[in-house]
Amino acid sequence: MNDEMDMEEEGGVVKQFMFVNRKAPYGTIYALEGLEVVLISAAFEQDVSMAFIDDGVYELKKGQDTKSLGQKNFSPTYRALEGYDIEKLYVERESMEARGLTEEDLLVDVVVLDRAEMAAKMDEQDVLISF
């Protein structure tokens, strides 16, 4: 949260930013860091989307419970994205299927894309930021 950064630049250039998430949560810091950067990026009023491919799909798995791990469960924060106007969450179907997951296993509403569609979606971005 930032009090000073609430700027509304009139007529600024809006680019398409896609944050590409490819790592499982907790085992490495990538998933959490990526999510924090996405939340901060919301202040810049760009066209932001998130892609979940490979182990990144595990970030959205329902029912995460880190009590006995001593780490913060950050999965509820994905549900806050909508309030930040980040509503384009794309999940690659093949990654989900390889891991035995279905859309019902995910804790937010997403758009499921097959591999070719995801590739096309990535192609059309101005900027890709990988985690």
């Binding site: 949560p25 907790y26 880190t66 791990l69």
Partner: peptide, 22 residues
């Protein structure tokens, strides 16, 4: 390891024959 399974929301889908330990 059970705590790592729970953290990832996977505690309810362990393969049969695998033992969960704390």
């Amino acid at each position: 390891l059970g705590p790592d399974l729970s953290a990832r929301g996977m505690a309810d889908r362990v393969l049969d024959g695998v033992s969960v330990v704390d």
